[in-house]
Design a protein around this nucleic acid. Structure first.
Length: 111
DNA sequence: CGCGCGGCCTAGC
DNA sequence: AGCTAGGCCGCGC
């Protein structure tokens, strides 16, 4: 069994363009439904060399990461929009449309 | 070693 | 959607 962080990175790196995942969802995928916070931590501590699409990881309301994570929420928003993600009027992600179904992940990975 | 704090979650109102 | 309360785990002090 790999480190929790590493498994987080593995999953996050599998999120396709135009899709997003929630912290809790990722935690669940790892069999730790209650460890969503650590996923957040993992994002924070993620080495930039991994090129993780952490902008595709949001909380369950579709809210973007705080300022200190990407410099500005607008930046993250722009990136996502460029990938085809749509937003609601209140500025949150349209999760029903873009929430990532992790099914494919199970097919191609032994976890 | 203990305590507080997180890019949070669920459950309950 | 909002609030509170509780929980989880890793890190920094």
């Amino acid at each position: 069994m790999k480190d929790f962080f590493q498994r987080v990175y593995l999953i996050v790196s599998k999120i396709p363009e135009g899709k997003v995942a929630t912290y809790g969802q990722i935690a669940k995928l790892l069999g730790e439904p209650r460890s969503a916070r650590i996923v957040g931590w993992a994002m924070k501590a993620a080495p930039s060399g991994l090129h993780l699409p952490c902008h595709r990881v949001v909380n369950r309301l579709g809210e973007l990461a705080p300022e200190y994570a990407f410099g500005s929420k607008q930046l993250q928003k722009d990136i996502l929009k460029a990938e085809g993600v749509t937003f609601k009027k209140n500025g949150t992600i349209n999760l029903e449309k873009h929430l990532w179904k992790a099914d494919e992940f199970y097919k191609s990975n032994d976890i």
